[in-house]
Simulated scan of single mutants.
Amino acid sequence: MRQRRLMNQINVVPYIDVMLVLLVIFMVTAPMMPTGTVDLPSVAKTSAPTAKQPMVIHINKENDWTLKDRGSPQEAMPVDKEELVARLRDAQASDPEKPVVIEAEKRVRYDAVMQVMDLLQRNQIAKVGLLVKPAEK
């Protein structure tokens, strides 16, 4: 008399049957689902707001800072921490909506940019952003 060996494999046929039934149910009910519409707001093209020219803080690889007001014809001027904060406060006192952007060279450490951002935040300079260079094709 020969002994029967135990089978160590899982029978996956019932699972496949269940999956096929679910697939058929979804295929039948999907076309019956209501579609949603999104009403986008429209904007008149003649009333485009003019963007304000920002104050640009440039950080080079030696961690030297220069400040340039893109709204004026003056050249960029080297500044230290105290002078930077004073000039930005003066600019935002005359125009509270004046944006400030930080521009850094490629080789500048992230820490140097964060130091400038922290300095501006501690001194309540509003509307601070980062200037990025678009990807070249």
Rank of each mutant, 00 (worst) to 15 (best):
residue 110 Y to P: 09
residue 123 N to K: 12
residue 106 K to R: 07
residue 116 V to C: 01
residue 38 V to Q: 07
residue 51 A to N: 03
residue 90 D to T: 13
residue 123 N to Y: 10
residue 53 Q to A: 00
residue 78 P to N: 06
residue 47 S to Q: 00
residue 8 N to T: 04
residue 105 E to A: 06
residue 13 V to L: 07
residue 122 R to E: 10
residue 63 N to Y: 05
residue 121 Q to E: 14
residue 78 P to H: 07
residue 126 A to Y: 11
residue 86 A to W: 09
residue 58 H to W: 00
residue 31 P to D: 09
residue 9 Q to S: 06
residue 103 E to T: 03
residue 3 Q to C: 01
residue 126 A to D: 10
residue 49 P to L: 02
residue 125 I to D: 12
residue 49 P to A: 00
residue 55 M to S: 02
residue 82 E to V: 14
residue 132 V to I: 11
residue 103 E to H: 03
residue 98 K to L: 05
residue 118 D to T: 13
residue 31 P to F: 11
residue 133 K to Y: 12
residue 98 K to A: 05
residue 30 A to S: 05
residue 86 A to S: 12
residue 35 T to L: 15
residue 129 G to T: 06
residue 30 A to E: 08
residue 19 M to Y: 13
residue 68 K to I: 03
residue 70 R to P: 10
residue 41 P to W: 05
residue 47 S to E: 02
residue 103 E to A: 04
residue 43 V to D: 07
residue 26 F to C: 11
residue 133 K to E: 14
residue 101 V to H: 01
residue 56 V to C: 04
residue 45 K to Q: 07
residue 112 A to K: 08
residue 117 M to F: 04
residue 5 R to V: 02
residue 130 L to P: 08
residue 25 I to R: 13
residue 125 I to R: 11
residue 39 D to L: 08
residue 20 L to I: 14
residue 86 A to E: 13
residue 128 V to T: 07
residue 79 V to W: 03
residue 39 D to F: 08
residue 108 V to C: 10
residue 114 M to C: 13
residue 39 D to A: 10
residue 45 K to S: 06
